[in-house]
Nucleic acid binder design. Structure first.
Lengths: 229, 229
DNA sequence: CTCGTCATTATGTCTGGACATAATAGTTGC
DNA sequence: GCAACTATTATGTCCAGACATAATGACGAG
């Protein structure tokens, strides 16, 4: 029953929360800690490295390890595939493709995705339902200049989300959340009133410096996106 | 110039995105990989462990390592202290305490924070401004049964956020985002019209199983919370 | 055929050593 | 006093080996 890197993590964490190691304080160096815990430096190193990844500590070569001034608290949350999200709530999943067309990228999209004039995009509008009630309105734009094969896929049966996830890689993502008043079209599909406050999530995805897709997800009034950590 | 665990990570990642290792595929075991890369198993282990943490792989003892079916797409973002967020945009930060009172926790709060009937809470309402324009309306509730010292702090000069961060530890957090129509009071403080669509973030915090604080942050129309990864 | 037992296997972690690298602090030259 | 070098120091990474642990799959008893 020897010392575990997890024990060291929680021991250090206790010292911090007890005020023994206030924000900004210098944590003993790895060699000293290893000696005092009676373990190898690698073990201490792992504990400290993870605490650093978690935003609790701050490390600089030669300068040493310090407790972060304002502990960088990171919210993480997974963005599930809608279908899984709905089925996870023991509700039945429904999907409808509302609209599909190929067109030149509009100006605002060109700017967002850094596209070139004349690039074609596939524009899809889909509605996802949970137990038959509108759950999410998906406004999807796929860069055909990058993924021409998307033009040949039939999105009538399953959403572009699922196709993209299994076939298109990505490396850079920008997400943003906000609120907007429902347009007449949105209100119609989501079963609410024009002007209602809707929660909106947008995601842009790139691969090797080139745009893959942009999507705007809109939810009915009252929807909340929740995460725990 | 030997092999780095980062090289292994990106090599595996390339194999995945190239379709060489499709979702669900079994990745060679650590011993084999170590041999083929000509490095120690510990190095391969670290690469695989990090890819697992990042949601790319899935590992089970004896069963081996597999590429995740639906790569767990995680948005991570740090929740900055408002002041730092504003000053980071090269804007001047302004703060006003609008309201402060001690009262019994209302029912909805008791339920949310799992409080006991009769527990006192400190209720604060504050406005944060960027270049004098309303930036964030903070509706803060602090559990006095847990942190009685909060009652003695003067929040006139700086926000409860900063005090909490530097003095109160927490271990469990639940965050949620949504949209809501502006109430008359919110519209007044945020300089918008009643009924406008506002972006709302809520955060509940616990430490050692007991509630620390609950806060609801409301932003003026048009605000977007953005993250990159 | 089903249930429990046990060997096998891949990952999880630790050791004690090594060299690499970044950043500081001290020293030297101007 | 200032700038450029240099030694020192703490972290970053690696290695080769070891034992721990969880989960599977095969085997045997009922």
């Amino acid at each position: 029953m020897s010392i575990n890197y997890k024990d060291i993590k929680s021991e250090i964490l206790t010292r911090i929360t007890k005020g023994d190691l206030p924000p900004g304080a210098l944590v003993p160096n790895e060699v000293e800690l290893a000696e005092s815990y009676g373990c190898a430096r690698a073990t201490v190193n792992r504990a400290m490295r993870e605490l650093t990844d978690e935003g609790i500590l701050e490390r600089r070569r030669k300068a040493g390890t310090r407790v972060r001034m304002a502990p960088l608290r990171e919210a993480r949350f997974s963005i599930p595939v809608v279908r899984e999200e709905i089925e996870g709530q023991a509700a039945s999943y429904g999907y409808t493709l509302l609209n599909r067309q190929i067109l030149h990228a509009p100006d605002w999209l060109r700017e967002r995705l850094k596209l070139v004039v004349g690039d074609d995009v596939l524009h899809l509008t889909c509605l996802h339902r949970a137990d038959n009630a509108p759950y999410q309105l998906e406004d999807r734009w796929i860069n055909l200049a990058r993924f021409p094969q998307a033009a040949g896929v039939d999105f009538a049966a399953s959403g572009p989300n699922e196709w993209l996830i299994s076939t298109v890689p990505f490396s850079d993502v920008e997400m943003s959340f906000g609120a907007a008043a429902a347009t007449a079209a949105q209100a119609n599909y989501l079963g609410c009133t024009t002007g209602d406050a809707l929660f909106e999530a947008e995601r842009s995805t790139w691969w090797e410096g080139r745009a893959v897709t942009f999507v705007r997800l809109t939810y009915p009034p009252g929807y909340r996106m929740t995460t725990r950590y």
